[in-house]
């Protein structure tokens, strides 16, 4: 996988994960182009797009579009499964996830993605293991956050 983008139906970017080193300007350009192309597609169309030298796989979940760029040799259908797995994980973590959860806890969404993929490849196929890892790290974070007069110490 080359990159993953999450954006809303209004075209607002909600999450971006780049596994290729593009300059910032290019990233913005790619994002803009893809968001407009995908939003212009009708719901009945298939989830794949040929774009430049890669393939774009996207899927809409409620108000959010999940969009991945993969290489020519990669399995498009499997990419849909990866997207779905990520959505399942978000759902389990937040408890019936919605767009607002991802907006307000975007860092958590990134953390979950980073436990699922590294360098654009799947690292863990067990949902349980991913969630366990996230939970342990959250616990680690809570432990070191003082509870006394710096009450709102964390990210708030």
């Amino acid at each position: 996988m080359l990159f993953m983008l999450l954006f809303s139906r209004q075209g607002k970017l909600r999450l971006q994960k780049w596994y290729m080193a593009y300059p910032d300007k290019t990233k913005k350009k790619i994002t803009r182009e893809l968001v407009t192309t995908i939003l212009a597609r009708k719901p009945k169309m298939c989830s794949f797009l040929e774009w430049k030298d890669c393939k774009i796989v996207y899927k809409r979940y409620a108000s959010l579009y999940f969009c991945c760029a993969i290489e020519q040799n990669d399995n498009e259908l499997l990419t849909l499964e990866i997207i779905h797995r990520y959505v399942e994980l978000l759902d389990k973590y937040f408890g019936s996830v919605c767009e607002l959860d991802i907006i307000f806890n975007f860092e958590k969404a990134y953390f979950i993605l980073d436990e699922l993929l590294i360098g654009g490849e799947i690292q863990e196929t067990s949902k349980k293991n991913v969630l366990k890892a996230i939970a342990s790290q959250d616990l680690l974070q809570e432990d070191e956050t003082p509870q006394s007069f710096f009450d709102d110490h964390g990210l708030g």
Partner: peptide, 18 residues
């Protein structure tokens, strides 16, 4: 602090270019 590291590395992945 782990919290710092977690956010720090997240920021590094998002903000750093080459």
């Amino acid at each position: 602090r782990f919290t710092d590291k977690r956010i720090g590395y997240l920021g590094a992945m998002l903000l750093l270019d080459e």
